[in-house]
């Protein structure tokens, strides 16, 4: 029983083969790791198609779901942790490594392909129509093998997955060297350091501004530096003090002195309270 490869499959093969080699080359030639991951995903999807073409629909699905879906997402996740921008420098640190690797790799590839081609010249393909249909389908056939001939290996692999999961937990675990600090401990620590013990002063908020980059004013009219978050301060993104508005407000307050003192002109404005409540 000899199965011949039809033209349709040949077309699929050549398309997917080219795509997968391009993806592989892209993987090793991209400078940025994210690009590599995306190229690899292309290769894997192409391979999934080839699996299906090779009468292995179950593996093709698993390839897409597990590899392209789960494993590649895991890779991308780790890449996000490590830093998306991380890219290799082009300078090779080990002398001669790159050229030796390329020459040896190509030599190895040639040996491999030559060996395979030599071994498979004139090979006849039996095909999987028989085995696949024996128990009603590819999945049923695989299941039968897995739970009969390969049962021990299957169980061992199950154990391996558990161990791998636990191992990942252990590796990623960070040991605590001292007891967790409570609120009380933090309070004591803050007082002991002698810095400003209470809350920082909130940003200066006036009737017309409620942005955190507005500095608060001290009684003498100067700026309270600490009222603005440090990154803004360092960047110099302080909103300049609108002296005209202040003067106007002061005049208004003096003009309506009979209405009573108004120390906090914005206190009644519920939407303009960006700082922490006191």
């Amino acid at each position: 029983m000899i199965e011949q490869i039809g033209t349709g499959e040949a077309v699929v093969f050549w398309v997917c083969a080219v795509l997968s080699v391009v993806g592989a080359l892209g993987l090793i030639l991209s400078r940025r790791a994210v690009h590599s991951a995306l190229w690899l995903a292309l290769t894997m999807i192409s391979l999934a198609v080839l699996y299906i073409a090779n009468a292995a629909p179950f593996l093709g699905m698993v390839q897409i779901i597990v590899y392209t879906g789960a494993v590649m997402m895991l890779f991308l996740f780790v890449l996000m942790v490590v830093g998306v921008d991380a890219s290799d420098s082009l300078v090779e640190t080990i002398r001669g490594q790159r050229w030796a690797a390329i020459i040896l790799g190509l030599g190895f590839g040639m040996l491999l392909t030559a060996g395979i081609a030599n071994a498979l010249v004139g090979a006849q393909m039996v095909g999987l129509d028989g085995p696949n249909s024996q128990y009603g389908g590819n999945v049923e056939g695989l299941a039968r093998l897995l739970f009969s001939d390969y049962l021990v290996a299957f169980e061992i692999v199950a154990a391996l997955l558990i161990v791998a999961a636990v191992g990942a937990l252990v590796l990623a675990h960070r040991e605590k060297w001292q007891p967790k600090l409570t609120q009380r401990d933090l309070a004591i620590q803050r007082v002991r350091t002698g810095l400003h013990p209470g809350n920082q002063p909130p940003p200066g908020v006036y009737a017309r501004h409620n942005s955190v980059d507005t500095p608060a004013l001290l009684p003498d009219g100067s700026i309270a530096e600490q009222s603005v978050p440090e990154p803004l301060r360092v960047r110099g993104d302080l909103r300049p003090v609108d002296t005209a508005a202040i003067t106007e407000t002061t005049e208004l307050a003096e003009g309506h002195a009979a209405d009573g003192p108004r120390d906090h002109p914005v206190a009644d404005d519920p939407g303009s309270s960006p700082g922490e409540g006191r």
């Binding site: 592989a24 790799g105 190895f108 392909t113 498979l120």
Partner: peptide, 28 residues
């Protein structure tokens, strides 16, 4: 020929090996 699949496999394997040898980013 069916061996084209095998040769494709060899090519991909070689590219992967060269990648292991050349790239320095552990994730790659």
């Amino acid at each position: 020929n069916p061996e084209n699949y095998i040769i494709l496999s060899g090519v991909l394997f070689t590219i992967g090996a060269i990648g292991v040898l050349v790239r320095r980013n552990a994730i790659v």
